[in-house]
């Protein structure tokens, strides 16, 4: 996502607001603006998740939606799975730390330590790749979510995520893959993959999210892909309107 640019945003304000300010004044305001914009804020407490999913459960029961079981399983098992993974990572770090402390200074053992760290990273990657191929959508969502906990993501993972985005039979899995990939949109291959995936989407939610993303990225190459979707005469009216607006802004 592109940051909201200070000069672009405020440069066209009337002179009494912007251009009459001294250079020092503008520089101070810009400094405050940067702090405000870059303040990511805290993560919400876990209790907020619990309250939300309890509310959703009640609401779903009221509306007679039987799919809810999968949501609760997804929310709880995903959290439990992440905890288990964190414990495993903690144990691995402890072993790595112990090895490091025991053999510090020895370059041979430093190499062993680096090897161990790489192996752990590979193990996590293999786990993610295996889980992405599971038949259960919940497990595939867990796999995609796990990617965000990885220190670095290689092309094997991004290719797999792009494949999930284009071909996974479940819309929820695709949407989570899209949200994850959006975080790597600065990688040219990922960006191209995101553009290519547009014409594979049937879900209005994903089509609109992709349109928002392409707008944020100011990605003109996506226009052709959106036009392919627009050629479908059965396309949802709201999606049609949104895609048309997106194309107008991009061009």
């Amino acid at each position: 996502m592109k940051e909201k640019d200070f000069n672009k945003t405020f440069g066209d304000l009337p002179p009494e607001d912007f251009s009459n300010e001294s250079r020092q004044e503008l520089s101070d305001i810009k400094r405050i603006y940067d702090i405000v914009i870059n303040d990511a804020g805290p993560d919400p407490p876990e209790s907020m998740d619990t309250r939300f999913y309890e509310m959703l459960e009640n609401e779903t029961l009221k509306s007679g939606n039987k799919k809810f079981g999968s949501i609760m399983t997804m929310a709880t098992s995903s959290a439990a799975f992440r905890r288990a993974l964190n414990i495993a990572a903690g144990i691995a770090l402890f072993i790595a730390g112990w090895l490091g402390a025991s053999f510090s200074g020895n370059s041979g053992n430093k190499k062993q330590l680096a090897l161990l760290t790489n192996e752990l990273s590979d193990l996590k990657e293999s786990l993610v790749l295996t889980m992405m191929k599971q038949s259960s959508p919940v497990e595939r969502i867990q796999a995609v979510t796990m990617v965000t906990t990885m220190d670095k993501v290689d092309s094997e993972i991004t290719i797999c995520l792009l494949s999930v985005l284009s071909y996974d039979p479940n819309d929820n899995v695709r949407l989570v893959a899209l949200e994850t990939l959006a975080g790597y949109a600065d990688i040219p291959e990922v960006r191209e993959g995101l553009i290519r995936s547009i014409s594979h989407q049937q879900s209005p939610l994903i089509q609109i999210r992709l349109a928002e993303l392409m707008l944020a990225l100011e990605e003109k190459r996506s226009v052709e892909e959106f036009r392919k979707i627009l050629s479908d005469i059965t396309l949802d009216y709201n999606v049609r309107t949104r895609l048309t607006e997106t194309i107008e802004v991009l061009l």
């Binding site: 999913y53 959703l56 609401e59 779903t60 509306s63 939606n65 799919k67 809810f68 999968s70 949501i71 997804m74 929310a75 819309d171 929820n172 949407l175 989570v176 939610l205």
Partner: peptide, 9 residues
């Protein structure tokens, strides 16, 4: 449209 479980996403 009533597909409430999508609200989780």
């Amino acid at each position: 449209d009533g597909d409430v479980d999508k609200f989780g996403i």
